Computed example of a mutant assay.
Amino acid sequence: MTIWNFGSINADCVYAVPHAPAPGETIAARALTHGLGGKGANQSVAAARAGATVHHIGGVGPDGQWAVDRLAAAGVNTAHVHPGDMPTGHAIITVADDGENTIVIFAGANAATSPARIAEALSGAAPDDLLLLQNETTCQVEAARIADEKGLRVVYSAAPFDAEAVRAVMPYVYLLVMNEGEAAALTAALGRDLADLDVPAILVTRGADGADWITPGTGERVSVPAPRVTPVDTTGAGDTFTGYLAAGLDTGHPPGEAMALAAAAAALQVQRPGAADAIPSRDEVDASRTD
């Protein structure tokens, strides 16, 4: 099968800082690096490095061919990444000594893809293919509806979190992916427990505490631990997890096995600086699981 990803593509500007700046505080960065990022691009790279066939749908600006080249070099099909007049999306990221980060994003070309272009890209999709979505683009509901009508399984990452965006896309979602903070915010906004939401499955990532797969209605829960590591940079860890998870599901692994694969990949990724550039290959992940 195939993974389709209508997702963001960003140029990441990453500043190494001693701690996250407080409101009104000015701090000096020790280093600046540039790399490929965006939740969409990160997930596409992760799924491709996990061994899946991945088609990315999105946009870049006149300054963005380098990002398309990076995606292609990672094994992602970029035929549906279109250049436009708006600048490529970018992110300003601070990474503190403990590996935690803060991120400010500018959508740019990520907000320029039309429903017609999404429909054209998905015309080659088949039933039971996966469509990955995140809240860093426009037209998420339209993309999810088109995919659902074609019989695709929609995997939606509710980040950056917005309760109304989640509410709008939920009727078409097969798997809703959130971290524990986003899950708490969603239950508060909707006034309902996760087990009562009207989606087939929910994944909650809990950082160093692992992840839970929840099946609403039945209340079934599958949990996996996270390998114990010392993080260098947590930027893109959740995207690495989601991309590897999607690849595992795409090849028929049950949730627990796909989650264990994803957890191993994320554990390697956080031990390296960067987002997409830090995502490990499948060989590296498999080797780490046999050590």
Rank of each mutant, 00 (worst) to 15 (best):
residue 3 I to S: 02
residue 5 N to L: 13
residue 9 I to S: 04
residue 11 A to I: 15
residue 14 V to H: 03
residue 15 Y to F: 13
residue 17 V to K: 03
residue 19 H to T: 14
residue 22 A to Y: 06
residue 23 P to G: 10
residue 25 E to I: 08
residue 29 A to F: 08
residue 33 T to H: 13
residue 36 L to N: 06
residue 44 S to H: 02
residue 45 V to I: 11
residue 47 A to Y: 03
residue 47 A to D: 11
residue 51 G to Q: 03
residue 53 T to V: 12
residue 59 G to R: 07
residue 60 V to A: 12
residue 69 D to A: 15
residue 69 D to P: 03
residue 73 A to E: 06
residue 77 N to Q: 09
residue 92 I to H: 12
residue 94 T to H: 07
residue 101 N to R: 00
residue 104 V to K: 01
residue 105 I to P: 02
residue 109 A to I: 02
residue 112 A to T: 09
residue 114 S to Q: 09
residue 118 I to C: 10
residue 122 L to Q: 06
residue 124 G to E: 15
residue 125 A to E: 13
residue 133 L to P: 04
residue 134 Q to N: 07
residue 135 N to Y: 06
residue 139 C to H: 13
residue 139 C to S: 13
residue 150 K to Q: 14
residue 150 K to L: 14
residue 150 K to H: 14
residue 151 G to R: 02
residue 152 L to S: 12
residue 152 L to Q: 07
residue 153 R to Q: 14
residue 154 V to K: 03
residue 156 Y to V: 01
residue 156 Y to M: 04
residue 159 A to K: 00
residue 159 A to I: 06
residue 165 A to I: 07
residue 170 M to R: 07
residue 174 Y to V: 03
residue 176 L to C: 10
residue 181 G to P: 00
residue 182 E to I: 05
residue 187 T to P: 00
residue 188 A to I: 11
residue 196 D to T: 10
residue 196 D to E: 15
residue 198 D to R: 05
residue 200 P to D: 15
residue 202 I to P: 01
residue 206 R to K: 15
residue 215 T to V: 15
residue 222 V to M: 10
residue 226 A to D: 04
residue 232 V to C: 09
residue 236 G to R: 03
residue 239 D to C: 05
residue 241 F to S: 03
residue 242 T to Y: 03
residue 253 H to G: 03
residue 254 P to F: 08
residue 263 A to N: 05
residue 264 A to W: 06
residue 264 A to E: 14
residue 264 A to Q: 11
residue 268 L to E: 15
residue 273 P to A: 12
residue 279 I to Q: 10
residue 281 S to G: 07
residue 281 S to I: 01
residue 281 S to A: 07
residue 282 R to A: 15
